[in-house]
Design a protein around this nucleic acid. Structure first.
Lengths: 220, 220
DNA sequence: TTAAATTTTTAGATTTGTCTAAATTTTATT
DNA sequence: AATAAAATTTAGACAAATCTAAAAATTTAA
């Protein structure tokens, strides 16, 4: 079945809220999408008719399996395009999102398959988020938050959750990017800040707030 | 100024008809766009308000300079994406058009500039059509139709006008593609067919009908 | 030059996605 | 439990893009 750009955007947002918050309600979806609750209600009726979600008036809603499949397909396209923009066209991390928001609605399946192959079948996008495969399967990675990490373990930065321009500026300053190897050397209990040693760089200190948004994994 | 997908499609079609036929009228534009004359009239009013064309009811119409600029920008995007699809993603010539029809409406200017650079600033798309530059300037090439070519001149295939699946199949069979070097060795007056010698291949004969759709240039 | 044919436009309807304002339902509070 | 607050839905409107059917203008041709 085919979906409009608007339908795809609603499905994607419902999916993301469902993942983060567990439940989705009309107001939070309206806020997420910068639209009005009444518009959400209208769209929910359409998506119910298309059998993509469970929805009873006044009772909340949730994507069913068919809806999740559609969402994962859009997420897959979004993240592959982000990878393309960052890796091939050399866009900065924080510039790729709005462009991928448009590209994710291009409909050709063959395009996406060829793009994936051209990019070398990447498993994670430039923000470290996993790219679902053709069947909607999401690669898993043993991630741990940098702020919870025991001392002296060498790890690799795998994703960053708050991707604001400010955060990016900070990371650029510290020369931290995805794939960066580092070790936590000391934790200051006073404010939770960490002394870290980045591979081939001098030791430095980062705040707990920054550390809480950096995720790492252990595998080489 | 920003334009809707529909506006861009109308502008592009008007531009192409204007190039081919000189004048544009409501019925031919409706035919070209697989829509109804009444819909064309409606859109013309909108485009006139946006000052993109001259239009007086019952008097025909024509893009002005602002309209041509918009058209060339869409054409530029279309052809750059076609080049990307063929060169990077290895799509066949005859598959790239419908996908580029969608991609051409992605709005980011920076995307197109980076894409152009990534592709190596190509001047012609996979069909041999010229790619306008950022300012709307179109590269020129001294093209000649293969059917008009004098004997014994070595030339290079630069474009193919009829890009149907059948024509493509034929060209693949003859191993002719853009950039192919060849010489016309003999012309048969009976049916206008040509004996051609393709670089590194045995001589072969092509019909006048095929020859009329192949264009060549002389420069190395 | 008048009638017929063609082209083009208008009038009015439809679909999609959105909105505001009001009504309804659910949840929380006293 | 009654009422206030919050969340959600309905009712009705609007803009964009399209359509059909009918009217109007232009062109062609007898």
């Amino acid at each position: 079945m085919n979906f409009t750009v608007s339908e795809e955007n609603y499905i994607k947002s419902i999916y993301h809220l469902q993942q983060q918050k567990g439940t989705v309600n009309t107001n939070s979806l309206a806020a997420e999408m910068h639209t009005r609750p009444a518009s959400v209600t209208d769209m929910l009726k359409k998506l119910k008719i298309k059998k993509l979600l469970q929805y009873e008036p006044y009772k909340g809603f949730r994507l069913n399996e068919a809806g999740k499949k559609v969402a994962l397909d859009v997420v897959r396209k979004h993240r592959l395009w982000e990878y393309f923009l960052a890796e091939k066209l050399k866009f900065d991390w924080d510039k790729v999102h709005p462009i991928a928001e448009e590209l994710e609605h291009i409909s050709s399946d063959e395009l996406i398959q060829r793009l994936e192959k051209f990019l070398g079948n990447p498993l994670f996008d430039p923000h470290g988020d996993p790219i679902p495969d053709r069947n909607g399967k999401i690669p898993v990675i043993n991630q741990q938050c940098l702020s919870d990490l025991p001392l002296k373990k060498t790890v690799i930065v795998s994703s960053v959750s708050k991707q604001t321009a400010n955060m990016l500026e900070m990371l650029r300053h510290y020369k931290i990017s995805l794939g960066t190897q580092l070790t936590v050397q000391k934790k200051f209990d006073f404010d939770g800040s960490l002394e870290i040693k980045i591979f081939k760089q001098a030791a430095c200190i980062i705040s707990e707030q920054v550390a809480r948004n950096i995720f790492v994994h252990h595998d080489l």
